[in-house]
Design a protein around this nucleic acid. Structure first.
Length: 656
DNA sequence: GTGCGAGTATGA
DNA sequence: CATACTCGCACC
């Protein structure tokens, strides 16, 4: 029995007697209720045994919630491994892995229409003869056909795949999944968001036929979510695709795991123990001897490390092929190039971008990527560019609408009489305009052109192949039928200026994801990057060479001693609690305590407190030992009911 | 997390 | 010596 208690020192199985009346329904993997320390608690039956190691008296199971075996042996072992890897508890992992039960869905789980599981499709998929004979879009990569052939032969190839720009990638993923399914194995595909899931869903339906796969999307509603998950757990469908939470989907006979755009921070689970989909899928591939495909337009340092260690092969296209599919990219970072046009100027659009966009609008839609969402923007003195601060409280001023006066974000005071304390000037300008503000300004710079805004909660999936300006924040770019005629990537310095070690890698990833939606250069597709052209990251986009850039990034992180070159642990909490935690911890000899610094105030709940973050670093080989030491310290603290929670995170994404 | 027994403080 | 409380630990 694995009891659902949140305490680190209780993270181990407990034995219970199975009363005769429950003997039939108490199958391994089922949900049960037991009395634990007097309390009725939920749990999962791990397995049944004739004898117990426990010297004391055993309590009996209270109730079998349902005989459905929701915790498969594979997922139980995986949850244990993930907990050990991330210094967390198995119960925490299972809370992420197994969706809440929906009794009606369980009783009536019946294949339905649409994107859900169709007619039971547990048998091998039969691919159309064409798909079986030809590598299709995979033929564009020298190693592509070999990867598919290895899959088709029942082997377990592992690839880090740098996808060619364009809209073939969902098809490529579906082909790989179909190839695994044709050998009678299962496939699991994880993508960052709903837009990408929709694309993969459609591609899977084309390649596999109806009813052969399940889409596990967040926000389906509990009943539908559980129904589809059950269809996967029961082996009624062998191909599952989904967003982050699907990384734990109990796909039967797993033969292939796929992760798309592994650099997207949506792949990092924000709940304890903070596992990352890349790591979890790699563990699963290892455990199930399954193939792995980690792909994206860009390349992360982490994926590069998988290639460097020999864990995976690189699947990339040859340079001439890249040139055939990539758009023309030009960078313009010089302020003197700012457009004369006043409206374009206030949208921070250089003249080259303006000219390119105007010309491209004759042919089709033009994408404008703006790296800040929302409407609220920081403001600075129009003349000397000193950050504008509230005269009363010193808080930062912001504007909410283009014609509204600036307002303090701390005290809310709006000061019409604002004067710059540095130069006496009386007007402010937006430092970075949100996408809606940019859209307003662009509408004035391109009179008569339709302007579409996509971002945040108002995301648009696709736009028709008609002239329109499409203003979007990174990750919310709609697809354009046939590709955009051009794209303008505004304010490159905002992305590059993020206080993050991986700022350049992340900027390149966002640029490439937008630029990949543009028609190839041979068809006139052009991308204007508003950033200094001489920067290595700009050059990487211009040459469409994410691999070299990622290799450099990995080398830098090795030199700096940052993940993935090392394992890092972050302990966050009240100062005394973190100090107590560290005193409790017996660090492995190779571990190095980097130091304790004030933690950035996370949310309102954490604000005000005296919170700190301690960092520990260890060579990769010592990662498990470090996690075990941190787990032991956490267990000792929870056993003693120490006040002040310490959050333990391994290789936290936001740190890098 | 809760529940409980041992140990310790406190006061009639 | 009776009662009130804290502390530490087991929880199957």
């Amino acid at each position: 029995m694995l009891v659902d208690v949140p305490l680190a020192h209780l993270d181990r199985p407990f034995d219970y007697l199975i009363p005769e009346r429950l003997s039939e329904s108490a199958v391994p993997g089922c949900r049960v209720r037991v009395r634990f320390a007097g309390q009725l608690t939920g749990g999962y039956l791990l397995d049944r045994a004739a004898v117990s190691e426990h010297p004391g008296r055993l309590a009996a199971l209270e109730r079998v919630v349902s005989p459905e075996p929701v915790l498969t042996p594979e997922i139980a072992a995986l949850a244990r491994e993930v907990a050990d890897r991330y210094a967390g508890t198995m119960a925490d992992v299972l809370r992420l892995a197994i969706p809440p039960r929906h009794a009606a869905a369980e009783a009536a789980a019946r294949p339905g229409p649409g994107t859900g599981p169709g007619t039971p499709g547990a048998g091998p998929v039969r691919l159309a003869p064409l798909a079986r004979r030809e590598a299709g879009p995979w033929g564009r990569y020298p190693a592509g056909p070999a990867f598919l052939a290895a899959l088709a032969g029942g082997r377990a190839p592992r690839a880090v795949w740098t996808a060619l720009p364009g809209q073939e990638w969902p098809e490529e993923i579906a082909r790989a999944a179909g190839t695994a399914a044709a050998t009678g194995r299962g496939a699991l595909i994880v993508v960052p968001d709903a837009r990408d899931l929709g694309l993969v869903d459609a591609a899977l339906a084309r390649v596999l036929g109806p009813g052969r796969h399940a889409c596990l999307a967040a926000g389906l509603g509990p009943a539908e979510r559980y129904r589809r998950w059950l269809a996967v757990a029961r082996g009624e469908v062998r191909v599952a695709a989904g967003t982050r939470a699907a990384m734990f989907a109990p796909v039967a006979g797993l033969g292939l795991v796929v992760l798309w755009d592994d650099g997207d921070d949506l792949h990092a689970e924000p709940r304890a123990p903070y596992p990352h989909a890349r790591e979890v899928l790699a563990l699963r591939a290892h455990r199930a001897r399954a193939a792995a495909l980690i792909g994206g337009f860009a390349r992360t340092a982490e994926a590069t490390s998988l290639v460097a260690s020999g864990w995976a092969h690189a699947v990339t296209a040859a340079r001439p092929v890249v040139r055939r599919f990539a758009p023309d990219v030009r960078a313009t970072g010089d302020d003197s190039e700012l457009a004369r046009d006043e409206a374009a100027r206030s949208a921070r659009m250089p003249s080259l971008a303006l000219r390119t966009a105007r010309a491209a609008l004759a042919r089709g839609p033009v994408l404008v990527q703006v790296p800040r969402r929302g409407y609220l923007t920081a403001v600075a003195c129009e003349r000397c560019r000193a950050a504008a601060r509230c005269a009363e409280c010193g808080g930062p001023l912001a504007v909410e609408a283009s014609d509204a006066p600036a307002r303090c974000r701390w005290c809310g005071r709006s000061d019409a009489e604002w004067r710059c304390p540095a130069c006496g000037h009386g007007r402010v300008r937006a430092v970075v305009a949100g996408s809606r503000r940019t859209a307003e300004e662009l509408a004035r710079a391109f009179p008569g052109t339709r302007v579409v805004v996509s971002g945040g909660t108002a995301t648009i999936g696709s736009v028709p192949a008609e002239p329109a300006l499409v203003v979007a924040t990174p990750g919310a770019e709609p697809l354009a039928d046939g590709g955009y005629a051009a794209a303008v990537l505004l304010d490159g310095w905002v992305l590059l200026g993020r206080p993050s070690l991986a700022a350049a890698q992340e900027a390149l990833r966002r640029w490439m994801n937008a630029a990949a939606l543009v028609a190839p250069g041979s068809a006139g597709g052009t991308v204007i990057l508003v950033a200094e052209a001489s920067l290595p990251v700009s050059q990487a986009l211009i040459r469409w060479d994410p691999v070299t850039h990622a290799e450099r990034e990995l080398a830098e992180r090795e030199a700096l001693g940052f993940p993935p070159a090392v394992r890092m642990a972050a302990m966050t909490g009240p100062a005394e609690a973190v100090a107590g935690f560290l005193a409790e911890t017996t660090l492995p000899p190779a571990a190095e305590l980097i130091g304790t610094v004030p933690a950035e105030t996370g949310g309102a709940a954490e604000a005000g407190q005296d919170r700190v973050r301690a960092l520990i670093r260890i060579p990769r080989s010592g990662g498990l030992g470090l996690a075990a030491a941190l787990r032991a310290a956490q267990a000792a603290r929870t056993a003693r009911k120490e006040t002040g929670q310490v959050r333990v995170q391994l290789d936290p994404a936001e740190l890098i």
